[in-house]
Amino acid sequence: MEAAVTIGPPGAPPDVGAAELPESEFQAQLVAALPAAYGYALRLCHHRADAEDLVQEAALLAFRGRGGFESGTNFKAWYFRIVTNCFRGRHRQEQRRPRTVDFDDAQDLDLRAASAANGVPFQGDDPASLLIDRIGTERVADALARLPDEFRVACALYFMEDFAYHEIAEILGVPVGTVRSRLHRGRKMLQKSLWRGAEDAGIVPARAGSPGSEVVG
């Protein structure tokens, strides 16, 4: 687990006032964080060009606001918060993601139960691994992209970087309990979204009628 994050209020750049990170040190930490930040940004934006623009915009804001970063704390988490804030700012203006899954609370779908109910092998050494492999990387990414924004952001932080709940809470500027509920709910939504993607691709049996007609779990 990494050190605590000290971050200014949402809407980067962060506070100014602490001893400013030397430019060379800032650059070294930024370069080290970029691969992870780009991966996170891509899972948020779902488009490579948008993800590149997002990490670049966030890098510039971080550079200008580096006085708000406290040396010795978690630079990656600090930068991720800026990336998240930039994403939120941009995303309010361009709602172009596909949203094809109904995430109604009453219609949870559990992959294991759905597999059992639809004749997909769900026993053996590692049935989930076989199922996810069949679904494939692109459809897994699509499934995440279909989640509502706040669930997608929390899940992207969780799945991409192994941040602990309290670190995600600091990045998002919300209480740990909110992170817990978003992750728990988001993971359920993701399972439903994965199953719908697998149905659409013909990997698992499609339900009779229109998508969403059968509720499992």
Partner: peptide, 18 residues
């Protein structure tokens, strides 16, 4: 099963090159 879903989704989503 749940643990494997999480591990495998992580594995898939992390297949990204800068």
């Amino acid at each position: 099963f749940e643990g494997s879903v999480i591990d495998n989704v992580k594995r898939k989503l992390r297949q990204i090159d800068l």
